[in-house]
């Protein structure tokens, strides 16, 4: 089963169903300080393992960068 997600404004296709935790691993951000919003709602880090992503989900994945 394919999974199509919109991550940071770009369409991405995955070949299997994913939880948020698995997505973080797929993207290579395991252990990195990121925050995730799914369809406009924050996904708390404590719930990454239990939130299953569904086709068409819109995700924002952010980090802290230099700024004033």
């Amino acid at each position: 089963m394919e999974l199509q997600l919109r991550i940071n404004g770009a369409e991405r296709r995955f070949s299997r169903p994913l939880t948020v935790r698995e997505l973080v691993g797929e993207l290579g951000f395991e252990g990195k300080r990121v925050a995730i919003e799914r369809n406009g709602e924050i996904v708390p880090r404590s719930r990454y393992g239990e939130v299953a992503l569904v086709d068409g989900d819109r995700l924002e994945v952010v980090v802290a960068v230099g700024g004033g």
């Binding site: 940071n8 990121v34 994945v61 802290a64």
Partner: peptide
């Protein structure tokens, strides 16, 4: 110290150092 919040670069090397 102030920081900005920005979309992570998806293709980014995960080993790259971060501001924090």
């Amino acid at each position: 110290v102030t920081v900005a919040i920005r979309r992570v670069n998806i293709g980014q090397n995960a080993g790259e150092p971060s501001l924090l």
